[in-house]
Amino acid sequence: MLEFRLVQGSLLKKVMEAIKDLVTDANFECSSTGFSLQAMDSSHVALVALLLRSEGFEHYRCDRNLSMGMNLNNMSKMLKCAGNDDIITIKADDGGDIVTFMFESPSQDKISDFEMKLMDISSEQLGIPESEYQSIVRMPAAEFQRICKDLSSIGDTVIISVTKEGVKFSTRGDIGSANIVCRQNTSVDKPEEATVIEMKEPVSLTFALRYMNSFTKATPLSNSVSLSMSSDLPLVVEYKIADMGYLRFYLAPKIED
């Protein structure tokens, strides 16, 4: 059987809100390492990878590796019934066809059980090699969200260019064009407010803003976001989940035909 107890239950609620519009059904893989998921969107342009390490849970028991197929919209409906301060416990039996979500209020005066049916999902898993990226930009997550939202009111695609001058986000549409440049800025009070550019080589890639905007639904998970780019690889947009792991989005670039 498996049983995970997550004191900061709101983390799981935030993860679901970040991915449920991108991916409909997914297999959650449970092992001694942690609770993970890898799933592509229906058009195979974007991929979500989640890892919540076992050490981040107050209690983590996983007797054998288990794959739980869930409809993310239904899971989100269940998790929305948990309070933001609730402790969430996930339970399932080996070979069973249900998962139980238990929500405990912080004062322990309200305890709820929700059972959800599991699904058989045949999903394609991609092998993602560890890569050295030509450029990695780390910036405040709220700033990145604002840029993607602003640019999508003007165009459908964004060109992200990293040079030693900074990172430039550009778009063009019927009404005109826009360029937003963020320079490296490490002289801030808090590290999460910094913009840090690690550039081995300049890189310039084009992406669909629709997907970028979808990724920024993960903004409540982390103060900062990192964008890893190479000219021959998908973009990686990573939100670290404090003390537990990460939520990563991979996005295939657009190219000149």
Binding site: G127, P234, K254
Partner: peptide, 14 residues
């Protein structure tokens, strides 16, 4: 013309 690539163009299936 700008063409949208897919992830399979970069990553292999396991």
């Amino acid at each position: 013309e700008i063409f949208q690539t897919s992830l399979e163009d970069f990553f292999t299936n396991k």
